[in-house]
Design a protein around this nucleic acid. Sequence first.
DNA 1: CGTCCGTTTGAAGAGTATCAATCCGTGTGG
DNA 2: CCACACGGATTGATACTCTTCAAACGGACG
Lengths: 186, 186
Amino acid sequence: MINQGDPFEGLYIVHCGMLKQSYQRRYDELITHFFLPGDVIGLDAIGYRCYAGTVATVETSGLRLIPFRCIEDLSSPEARLKELICCLSEAMHDEHTRLWQILNQPSDVKVAGFFITMSYKFRNQGCSPHSFRLPMSRQEIANYLCMASETACRIIKRFQKQGLLSARGHEYCILDPEGLTSIAEQ
Amino acid sequence: MINQGDPFEGLYIVHCGMLKQSYQRRYDELITHFFLPGDVIGLDAIGYRCYAGTVATVETSGLRLIPFRCIEDLSSPEARLKELICCLSEAMHDEHTRLWQILNQPSDVKVAGFFITMSYKFRNQGCSPHSFRLPMSRQEIANYLCMASETACRIIKRFQKQGLLSARGHEYCILDPEGLTSIAEQ
DNA sequence: CGTCCGTTTGAAGAGTATCAATCCGTGTGG
DNA sequence: CCACACGGATTGATACTCTTCAAACGGACG
């Protein structure tokens, strides 16, 4: 889809499905974003005129391109530009939240926070916040949360034993939102 | 100066000195930014209309305020808005870089990367990239890099033994830039 | 001189990564 | 229809980095 370093051609709005953005180094990569419907892809590409990471689908997805010239075009209404500015700033803020979620927190807090965040995003889409499907693999979740996939497995299993959630394949049920939240906000 | 949650009043451009932005939780705080001359404070506050973190001086600093109304004012030239958009996007990208620097990397890589980044920033200001003063404490550096202050101490001491840099109080000399870079890019 | 705060140093412990093996579901070819 | 293989998921044992706790040290300042 999009490769890290590709020249910036425009923003993409996600209509359906799920995508991931990853930042590549020598031999490994770090997943920096999961994009759900309503999210904007490419905000971090405007300034340096090239995409900051590789974007790939996690499941079949629908996108809409907003070409670069529409952003750069001086004749576009200023309202749009300001909308974009707010969008950028909010994305930056959300990034801080994620950064905090991950840094300095033990793994179980990170995993709990991940499921709470996902639940919240599905609720915003009008889907059930208690039962949903996450198309990404455990390894991708672990990478996103910066931990070994084995660690993610063990914690998910522990959460199941504690009755906090159930996981069968890619289907997840949040059984105890309060319990998970209390762990995430530890 | 600025407290987390304060209503957004405008952006600040740093003219001289150094400041820090920290994100506060229950009992602890995470330093998310060190602002050097040329940096912009408050980009992450535009969208949600309130400052995302507490900003405080690390040493005496000079700032210039760009009031909110200048940003919101419809009559402002569009060129300025687009400049702001690029600024936001670049800041977001730089944030990714920092996020990567910290996540998943052993402590010595983080510390080496920190000094390389600082050296680079001083060079951009026209100061010596080999010898400079960092007004922040070791504890603040450690917090910024998400590690215990003792760990930061030990690594700085090890770097000194290896002849990579020298540190006397807040004065630092980069003795072996290539050596540090090779550790940082590990 | 004594106190305070930041720095440094040491020893112990917790948490997580790593490695290795096994399990499981899916798809493939005979 | 049934082995078989493959990738992901799971589980266990081990090693290691880093944090934590505790204490000593140093300079700044009243």
